[in-house]
Design a protein around this nucleic acid. Structure first.
Lengths: 342, 342
DNA sequence: GCTGAAAATGTAAACGTTTACATCAAGCTT
DNA sequence: AAGCTTGATGTAAACGTTTACATTTTCAGC
């Protein structure tokens, strides 16, 4: 069926060992032999069988990417960044997405096991114990935005707390005194950290911190839409809304527009993530910029380092900094319409 | 290192063959033996090695997904749909994205070869010959939105032509006589078909069809932004813009807003793809709805059928229908603000 | 021309499964 | 009771590589 190394060896008049040596540039081979083997391989359109090789070398040259039930551009940008970096390093990406509970994650881990040389896990729900039970000790892992700060695993986290604090402080600096928050999914690390940052910024400014100002959400547009409607019923009405991500901010913006509340004049609105579309909204959305595709790329780099330098590699926790992308929706007119790129 | 089938066999006091039979539910095995084997496997936390199995069975249980340099939500929705369906069928997804030229695709194909049981190729640039040279005859393939109508490959195409025709006809029906188009990437099938549909609809209505009304674009927001600015310089000024995808429509909307042109009052605007965010724009974007995640799911279903029923399967070309999502941006007030879901 | 090292190449085991075939025991049929 | 069938299990080959080790060849140094 498919042409194997044996046929190449036969055609070139050598043993399979020699063919392997030639094709992998390893060990001493006579120039003339090398030429003959190369020629034979080319003529037969020989492509080494990846499975056979994997079995022998115990490498797969693949990286597993385990994603939660992510949506929209955040999802695609992470994959794009990861894939690009993986390709550059001659690794492949095994993607498994939409895992929301422990069972699904465990199943996915089992499936990945043996098929990948390393794993990137982005899962706000997972706990260290589940991971340790389901993963061989020797498999390099990088955690992306996970709760766990266990020293067994490398981790990469967005500076949710810092970014939110900055943003809310920005609103306060521009005169807002009553700021509502649309929270993210419950028990989600990002959501919790953003909430924590929000509370801290309010407290630091000596402002009233009330649960009445905190509205449930789940990171999807719909929930932002609903939350905004409820926020408008509050008395006194808040003058600003911090949405825990851009999707919800977009939903909120939609609700505000529908109800005739002008953004930012009657209500300031900010998001988090700075998805590409934020700058094209009307009004353009002020958001906390997260280098999303970098995040994927960084995770891959870290992981590949762990794979290649298994012995040298030491566990490391990194926090990816964020920065404010000030646009129209927060009403900070000095920065109006910059539309800056990063 | 990792526990193998041999250790399970030893612990259970049987041969590896029996263990294999038990774990795969194949062939007759004594109930008591079965129990012992299961127990041993559980105690040892045995997980079959996927590579060894692949080598033996010549299956990988993986599907390759080859994507072009796609952006934004279209990209993520295709992957989501594909992944979901793949998981349901116990297949894994090997994703390789951002391929824009032939060399990259050939490289990706070679890499995929042997690692997957089937391949979904979404690549507006590829030609049948390149595929035939680089793929073993026996590998099932589904082409997604590719030029090729070669009978060697299954294909799945969006009804670009029909969708565009409908949309442009809709604009005409609402009184527009001078409609500009922002074209998609050159040499891209989607782009060409949408252009063809646009021209046809104009012609059918007996309207002037001029190259002056056709503006270059590349499916990214920026190009929509630029094109819109140029469109506004036209005299007589068009009263409607058909953008070949939503991203460009969003860019165009941004430009119009900046220049103080009211949408839809002074300029109607429509897109194509109906990405999730379209309904949350202001004004909400009228677009040609494409069941994007279905597209990924359908492709996987088709492919899995081809893989499983290799002999029964016959080549088939399918066209995925589109439909109009009428919202505010086209100014067809009767449908104002429906915000319908699909 | 011998010795020994270095270079070139071959042999075969190993990687972890599945599975065709062989074997053996037990129960039926006649 | 001999011959069959069936069920349960074991044996070993096969899948396609890589690589440790063995073997052969070459050739410099004496």
């Amino acid at each position: 069926m498919r042409v194997t190394i044996k046929e190449v060896a036969q055609k070139a008049g050598v043993s399979t060992a020699t063919v392997s040596r030639v094709l992998n540039n390893v060990g001493p081979v006579d120039d003339d032999t090398r030429r003959r083997v190369r020629e034979a391989a080319r003529e037969l359109h020989y492509i080494p069988n990846a499975v056979g090789r994997s079995l022998s070398t115990k490498r797969t040259d693949a990286i597993g990417l385990l994603l939660p039930d992510l949506h929209g551009e955040f999802f695609s940008e992470v994959i794009r960044g990861a894939d690009e970096t993986a390709q550059q390093n001659r690794f492949h990406l095994l993607v498994s997405s939409s895992h929301s509970n422990r069972e699904e994650i465990e199943a996915a881990l089992q499936v990945m096991r043996g098929r990948v040389d390393g794993l990137i896990i982005m899962s706000p729900h997972i706990d260290a114990h589940t991971l340790k039970v389901n993963l061989p000790k020797s498999l390099p892992v990088v955690l992306l935005n996970c709760y766990i700060e266990d020293d067994a695993f490398d981790s990469l986290n967005i500076d949710n707390y810092g970014g939110t604090t900055q943003m809310v402080s920005h609103l306060i600096a521009h005169g807002h005194r009553c700021i509502a928050i649309i929270k993210g999914t419950e028990k989600n690390l990002d959501a919790e950290e953003r909430l924590r940052g929000y509370r801290f910024a309010l407290g630091e400014a000596g402002l009233h911190c009330s649960e009445n100002l905190e509205f449930a959400g789940n990171f999807l547009e719909d929930s932002g839409y609903e939350a905004a409607k409820r926020i408008l019923e509050l008395r006194p009405r808040p003058t600003a809304i911090f949405a825990s991500n851009d999707s919800m901010a977009i939903g909120a913006m939609s609700a505000l527009r529908e109800l005739g509340v002008a953004v930012p004049q009657e209500m300031a609105l900010t998001g988090f993530d700075d998805i590409p579309i934020a700058r094209y909204l009307s009004p353009s959305l002020t958001s906390v910029h997260v280098p999303i595709s970098n995040l994927g790329a960084l995770a891959i780099q870290k992981l590949i380092h762990a794979i290649r330098e298994k012995n040298l590699h030491t566990v490391h926790h990194a926090i990816v900094p964020t920065n404010l992308a000030i646009r129209e929706s927060c009403g900070c007119s000095s920065h109006k319409n910059t539309g800056e790129k990063f």
